[in-house]
């Protein structure tokens, strides 16, 4: 019973990503959207939390939100997959349910 978690908050402003990582069980997926995409960048105070979580959880980031914010893919933590809206839909299908960390 896998869950797709979505995170739409910057980890520097709110703790949605932190809560998500705390409760995302092994084999689930996390998709960073909207301001959540900043959490996918490397060299930040939140990067270690993400790389630790990546041992058990798949991480994705929404391309439209990355591009809109001028975040180049070269700045992403290695292993985070960039996806589009169609992939977002597929992720909701592949997982059994969706939890939005609003």
């Amino acid at each position: 019973m896998a869950i797709l978690h979505t995170v739409n908050k910057s980890p520097f402003e709110r703790d949605a990503l932190k809560a998500c990582v705390r409760m995302a069980s092994k084999g689930s997926s996390v998709l960073m959207i909207e301001d959540g995409v900043y959490g996918a960048t490397k060299g930040t105070t939140a990067s270690n939390m993400v790389t630790d979580a990546m041992k058990d959880v798949n991480f994705y980031v929404l391309s439209a939100d990355l591009k809109a914010r001028g975040v180049d893919e070269s700045r992403l933590i290695e292993g985070i997959k960039v996806v589009n809206y169609s992939d977002f839909v597929n992720l909701t299908v592949e997982n059994d349910k969706v939890q939005s960390w609003l």
Binding site: N8, E34, D65, N84, Y85, S86, F88, V89, N90, V93
Partner: peptide
């Protein structure tokens, strides 16, 4: 908030995929 725009893009993609 971006929420409605994200939802709109999601719904369009879902419809395009035949959902």
């Amino acid at each position: 908030h971006e929420a409605s725009t994200t939802a709109l893009n999601f719904v369009k993609a879902a419809l395009e995929a035949g959902h």
